[in-house]
Write a protein that binds this DNA or RNA. Structure first.
Length: 631
DNA sequence: GTGAAGGGCCAC
DNA sequence: AAACGTGGCCCTTCAC
């Protein structure tokens, strides 16, 4: 069934695509900022076919506007701000559009959030729906400046990403052109919004929000055709939580980070010198300056140097290829020691403390809600989802005085999804028993009792379980475990004999996906594939992707549902989500409240999982810790 | 000088 | 030769 706020508005047979937006003659704005310029304004407007608009400068006008807008089924909303960072700038304008009219709130005439009560009431209710392009942006400003949490969002950017992830651009101008045949000029987006606004700036502001209601209709048609309504609802509902996470940021202990950096810098220098020496052994003699210095971070140079030393490699110096050679060649061993330090120094170095917001003293990364076609988040500036899990780095992320972290992550969510989808009895039983999964797998695959499973066998089973989700093959498995190809093949065979239905499911999913050139997650999220059926490599690559996508995609579905539920759960408490990493939520909370919040976050995450998985138990246990370090 | 591509490695 | 899915960041190299 469709969610109620979308259901009634899905057009059955209306084709909105390429239909030009209706044009209106300008009515003189009732409360223009600059009444003397009215006539010039009117001319410009007529040329560009803009909605009539009203400029709002006091709360009485706002009240009236909100009362009128309340009747609409959806309202386009767009904020123009004086900065990209809500901690550094202000909202300059807020435009609100129904199908006929645009109201432009001039925030310069308002002081503090008190005059915005009617707006808060309008936007926090489920209806009318608030239409935004990239709602996270507007939501952050509205939350920070006016304490408004959007009640029912329709995000045209997220909708477009769901419809076609691989499209190069999802910006508003592109969508307006594609779905409505309207050309939007975006050159004013980054103009100066601090002083008095020009007519063209106002035109720009109005046009940007007036396009949203018709665009929503067109997108609903498309979402409906592609059966993406449920997925869209899931995405939209997660937006306020994501906005709150970015606003909250996470505290980074600068002193600890610097300590770590100092340690790594020392080790790096030592290793660099040693490696340089070892590599020089193969260099041609008699250069003017003694040894020829090699740039240790230049892969082609390293490759050549290793070749000179008769290391049997061809064109790649990838670590997993070098690993077997480390014993025989000390220079290779040294290189493998050097590389992670080099990575650490560059990727987790000084750039992190320049990213600390001077006002909050915290790091505020940018979370891209649909970062992958499977629906996973991606994260930039900085990418806090890839901080090394060694304590040296993780201890730098700590709760401020009086507060603590509560970390809740799903236990093996993707493998549980695989169990559910395949309905494999042995795999399901492994989860239902509640025992250690990898031990259970080992006992089932090697046909021994759980008590007899050695640590090596458990590790083996763990690698098997994870590898299978990604469509691992025998060669890679052999390489990973250090066994022979023959042995690896035998092990994989035994694994799939143990979990017969699991094998069947993965096989059928891949076959079906190759046929349909698409596959869906549990929420209906669509992942499309383009490949040449005659190209073997492309076919097998697509097969592996298609095996993984429904699992990873459903993991994302569950996680996003959890974000919504947890976000709601935490309203009015001292807790705030400060980080999310695919299946893990990090909450910062007043210490006295931590136990209670931990239980509640865990319950909501389990609830989200249970909405999608019915055959396997969901586990998400809270850990309370002052640093971002898990057991 | 800038930007794309390739290689490598960090996370889940 | 590689044969494991999804990302982002950093470096070097190379073309423009």
């Amino acid at each position: 069934m469709l969610p109620s706020n979308l259901r009634e508005t899905v057009p059955i047979s209306v084709r909105q695509r390429h239909k030009p937006v209706r044009t209106y003659r300008l009515r003189p704005p009732g409360e223009s900022l600059q009444p003397t310029r009215k006539s010039r304004l009117a001319q410009v407007t007529a040329q560009h076919s803009t909605n009539p608009f009203t400029i709002i400068t006091n709360s009485d006008q706002l009240k009236k506007a909100c009362w009128l807008l309340e009747q609409a089924e959806a309202v386009g909303l767009d904020c123009e701000t004086t900065h990209l960072d809500p901690y550094k700038g202000d909202i300059r304008l807020t435009q609100l559009s129904n199908d006929r009219h645009t109201y432009v709130i001039d925030h310069k005439h308002f002081h503090g959030p008190c005059g915005f009560q009617p707006l808060k009431q309008l936007l926090e209710s489920l209806r009318p729906r608030t239409i935004c392009h990239h709602a996270k942006f507007d939501q952050k400003w509205l939350l920070k400046k006016l304490g408004i949490q959007l009640g029912g969002i329709f995000d045209t950017m997220l909708a477009s990403q769901l419809i076609h992830f691989n499209r190069k651009s999802h910006n508003l101008a592109t969508l307006a052109k594609l779905y409505l045949g309207v050309t939007l000029d975006k050159t004013l987006q980054s103009s100066d919004w601090t002083g008095d606004l020009s007519e063209t700036q106002l035109q720009y502001a109005v046009r940007d929000s007036q396009v949203l209601p018709p665009l929503r209709k067109a997108l609903i048609t498309k979402l409906s055709q592609d059966s993406l309504i449920r997925a869209a609802q899931l995405e939209f509902e997660a937006v306020p939580t994501v906005a709150a996470i970015e606003l909250a940021g996470i505290y980074l202990d600068l002193e600890r980070w610097k300590e770590q950096l100092t340690i790594i810098t020392h080790q790096h220098q030592t290793l660099a010198a040693e490696l340089q020496e070892l590599l020089a052994a193969g260099a041609p003699q008699g250069t003017l300056f003694g040894h020829t210095q090699i740039n240790l971070d230049a892969h082609p140079q390293i490759l050549n140097a290793l070749k000179r030393l008769n290391v049997p490699i061809d064109k790649s110096t990838k670590s997993n290829l070098l690993l077997p050679l480390a014993k025989q060649f000390p220079v290779v061993a040294k290189l493998l020691e050097y590389r992670p330090l080099s990575k650490a120094l560059t990727s987790y170095g000084e750039s992190w403390f320049t990213g600390i917001n001077p006002i909050t003293q915290r790091v505020h990364p940018d979370f891209n809600q649909i970062g992958a076609p499977t629906g996973r988040f991606s994260c930039t500036d900085p990418n806090i989802q890839q901080v090394p899990h060694t304590n040296g780095y993780r201890r730098c992320f700590r709760a401020p005085e009086g507060r603590t972290f509560c970390i809740v992550d799903y236990s093996q969510i993707e493998l549980r999804i695989l169990a559910e989808f395949s309905q494999d009895p042995a795999f399901l039983a492994a989860f239902r028993s509640g025992a250690d999964l990898h031990k259970t797998t080992a006992s089932q695959v090697f046909n021994i009792s759980i008590d007899q499973v050695s640590p090596e066998q458990r590790d083996f089973a763990k690698r098997l379980n994870f590898g299978v989700v990604y469509g691992i093959g025998a060669p890679r498995f052999a390489n990973m475990t250090g066994t022979s190809l023959r042995e690896a093949e035998a092990t994989l065979r035994r694994y799939f004999q143990t979990y017969r239905l699991l094998y069947n499911y993965l096989r059928d999913a891949a076959t079906q996906a190759l046929q349909d050139r698409q596959i869906r997650s549990a929420s209906g999220r669509l992942v499309r594939y383009r490949f040449d059926p005659n190209n073997k490599e492309q076919v097998s690559s697509t097969r592996r992707k298609a095996r993984n996508a429904p699992i990873q995609g459903t993991g994302s579905d569950i996680f996003k549902r959890a974000l919504r539920l947890v976000g709601e759960e935490l309203r009015g408490t001292s807790a705030q989500i400060v980080n999310i990493i695919h299946d893990e939520i990090v909450v910062e909370v007043d210490a006295y409240e931590a136990e209670d919040i931990g239980r509640r976050v865990s319950l909501r995450m389990v609830q989200a999982g249970e909405e999608y998985l019915t055959s396997v138990p969901i586990k998400a246990e809270p850990q309370i810790t002052s640093e971002w370090i898990k057991d």
